[in-house]
Simulated scan of single mutants.
Amino acid sequence: MTAGSDQELRSQIVTLLNSGLATDVFPRADTHEDVQEFVNELRAAGNDLKSKLRLAGFTLYPVDHGGIEQLCETCMYYKVHRRYCELPELNVPVEPDWSCRLWRI
């Protein structure tokens, strides 16, 4: 995927979320079991972007959970220079201040 297509996909994500796509922001993936459950759901969604965004609980803003501000930029799956989530089941370009319920330190 090229930087141009990454930006196009980011724009598509923004459009979907701003147009009212409901996402499962809570519950967050607080335990290993939660992570496994959400990852299995993402695998089942395949390449369906809307389903992936909904299941991952994407937001265009940081989410405060348990006193921790959870944003892509501080997640272990975030690739800084590409602005990208490398969690294999997501594998989408993101912005640093977005969030999802699979956030990990």
Rank of each mutant, 00 (worst) to 15 (best):
S19I: 07
R82K: 15
A29M: 03
Q36H: 11
G4Y: 11
K79A: 15
M1N: 14
C100T: 05
R104P: 00
R54H: 09
Q70S: 05
Y84H: 12
A56Q: 03
G20Q: 04
P88M: 03
E73F: 12
R104G: 11
N47F: 12
L42G: 01
N91C: 15
E95M: 08
A22M: 10
H32K: 15
A56E: 02
T2Q: 13
C75M: 06
F58P: 02
G57A: 02
M1Y: 15
L87H: 01
Y77G: 09
A22Y: 11
R43W: 14
A56L: 03
C100L: 04
F38R: 10
E33P: 04
H65S: 13
I68P: 11
K52C: 04
S19M: 07
Y78A: 08
L42R: 03
L71F: 09
R101C: 00
P96N: 05
R54Q: 08
L55T: 04
L71Q: 09
Q12L: 15
L71P: 04
G20D: 05
R54D: 01
G66S: 06
H32A: 11
E86C: 12
C72P: 00
I13T: 11
A45C: 14
P96K: 06
G66V: 07
L9T: 10
T74C: 07
V80D: 15
D24H: 11
A29D: 00
V92Y: 12
Q36G: 08
T15V: 13
S19K: 13
L102T: 02
I105K: 11
L16W: 07
G57R: 00
E89V: 15
L16G: 07
Y77A: 13
F26D: 08
S51K: 15
